[in-house]
């Protein structure tokens, strides 16, 4: 059954996303997800983008009905939560984290756990780079001798270009693992690059989530369940997942091309 959490703070992050600071303690493993429930609207999966002793942060992109409703909430509203669920990241030092767009959200807790690693954060333009002015994040990165490289499609901040182009330059034999989260088209390219260089990849995927506990079959990707076997998958799993980078299922269970799924989901 859902636990109830109060919204303590709402932070506008980008023109299309907000962060909610929710009260309460959560036992959470890196990369897991939670189901947020807004009674009368819907219940959807999200990453925890920062965890503290008695509060946590969830960053939400305003896309569909649910996320638009959630970004219109006021401080003090109670929302329901199930989870955390799923299988997450295994942190290793000397790695690279590739985060595209909102994919930066689940990367924050990972940054706390890895050392001597590089974060490649990409977005379409400067205003869409999450947590760009977050001093906590800057401190966090410095503390573990990590560094961050920004890139934007339009060159308005950092390097002009895609995360994958930066990764191509930075990946080398010393890279222990490449972690990635963001648009699946990007993830697929990151994975292919890792395969070519024979470096382990851990990727966080998303599919249409209903039960979140491995029974309804809504989030299948090949023979894997994103909610239970994932959302973070290893190279070994990704190699076998026939639908990865190609197909996803709509709410009805209809199998469609990935692009159709994402445009459906964003309605």
């Amino acid at each position: 059954m859902q636990t109830i959490h109060k919204i303590k703070k709402i932070i506008r992050e980008t023109p299309k996303s907000v962060s909610l600071i929710l009260d309460g303690k959560i036992t959470y493993q890196l990369g897991q997800f939670i189901m947020l429930w807004l009674p009368g609207v819907d219940e959807k999966p999200f990453a925890i983008s920062y965890l503290d002793k008695d509060e946590f942060r969830v960053t939400i992109e305003e896309k569909g009905n649910f996320t638009k409703a959630i970004s219109n909430l006021i401080i003090g509203t109670q929302i329901g939560l199930r989870g955390p669920y799923g299988h997450g990241f295994e942190p290793k030092d000397n790695s690279i984290i590739v985060a595209g767009g909102l994919g930066m959200a689940p990367a924050i807790e990972l940054i706390k756990k890895v050392k001597n690693s590089t974060i490649i954060q990409g977005a379409k333009s400067k205003e869409f780079l999450l947590y760009l002015n977050d001093e906590n994040l800057t401190k966090l990165i410095e503390k573990n001798k990590n560094k961050i490289v920004h890139c934007t499609d339009d060159g308005s901040f950092g390097i002009r270009g895609f995360t994958t182009q930066v990764l191509k330059k930075l990946i080398n034999k010393q890279t222990k693992t490449v972690y990635t989260c963001g648009p699946e088209v990007m993830i697929k390219k990151v994975f292919e690059l890792c395969e070519k260089k024979k470096i382990e990849c851990q990727a966080s995927l998303e599919r249409m989530m209903k039960c979140a506990i491995g029974v309804c079959g809504s989030c299948v990707c090949g023979d894997q369940l994103v909610c239970k076997d994932g959302p973070v998958f290893s190279s070994e799993q990704l190699r076998k997942m026939k639908d990865f980078g190609k197909y996803a299922r709509l709410k009805s269970g209809k199998k469609v091309a990935l692009s159709e799924y994402f445009s459906y989901r964003d309605q």
């Binding site: 429930w37 209903k210 039960c211």
Partner: peptide
């Protein structure tokens, strides 16, 4: 959603027969 949820000693659902 919520369409499936854990309860004590079982599950509680109203997935509502999704089908292509």
């Amino acid at each position: 959603n919520p369409s499936v949820i854990e309860i004590e000693n079982g599950l509680y659902n109203a997935v509502g027969l999704p089908t292509p």
